[in-house]
Design a protein around this nucleic acid. Structure first.
Lengths: 127, 127
DNA sequence: GATCTATATTCTTATATGGGAATACGGTCG
DNA sequence: CGACCGTATTCCCATATAAGAATATAGATC
């Protein structure tokens, strides 16, 4: 039963946060680390979990692995992702993730515009 | 996080079926046994699981324990139950459960009307 | 009070899970 | 080719889970 598999994926906070962030667009592991503020192993493992179950897709882009929601999500997945978004609309933790994502995106945009070569931390971005 | 708890409850087929049937109205354990065609222990344990997590409520009625969805479900629960109903609308297994439930209800109605005292099987109902 | 009925609980076993530390792997760049 | 970076995997531990058999409990009925 496809649906149960979806719920199994949804029943961990980290995975919920991953999927929630992914509704905003594809992202690589290192950016997830920043956005969720969780260690690499944790992120990577949960993405792997989601991937083997078909809830996310991954493509390599040089050193980076970019994860995204499936190109053609099943009706069940679509319904549940929509439901999830609804449910966390007012949840502080999930909104904090989105805030950090936006911050990431904006520094990325600046970098793209040639404004600065790299953020103060010296961390390389994979924009 | 309330939401995760809900998903944890939803990630087992038996519990999904229980909740799905409950959207049609309260039911006692023995009727669940008939409707789901699953052993008593299984039904009872999963209902217990749901109960301790607040997804269902129980009231004793003589020998019978009648389970029902919460009188005031949280917004998250309501959203997810609606989503669930949507998702299983065309699923054979879940619809079979509903069919058996209706059959139960009708024999119950007959019994109430004084038509027959008990079904052919001799099984007592808790209508 | 003895018995029956519906339901819950305990015990056991097998399996899945989440997390972290350390390590392996695939690509890139000098 | 060798160092480096981002990511995945392995190993280990603690904990949760599902299922069934057997047993206990609460309430009804005679």
């Amino acid at each position: 039963m496809e649906l149960v598999k979806i719920y199994q994926c949804l029943c961990d906070v980290t995975r919920l946060r991953l999927l929630h962030v992914l509704t905003q667009g594809p992202l690589c592991v290192c950016d997830f680390q920043t956005v969720l503020a969780e260690p690499q192993v944790k992120i990577s493992k949960h993405l792997g979990y989601l991937r083997t179950r078909g809830l996310v897709e991954a493509t390599r882009r040089g050193n980076w692995m970019v994860y995204a929601l499936p190109a053609k999500p099943s009706a069940e997945l679509r319904a549940n992702l929509a439901c999830l978004q609804d449910c966390v609309a007012e949840d502080a933790r999930f909104q904090r993730d989105l805030a950090r994502l936006r911050r990431l995106d904006s520094t990325c945009a600046v970098a793209k515009a040639g404004g600065v070569s790299a953020p103060a931390t010296g961390r390389k971005r994979c924009c």
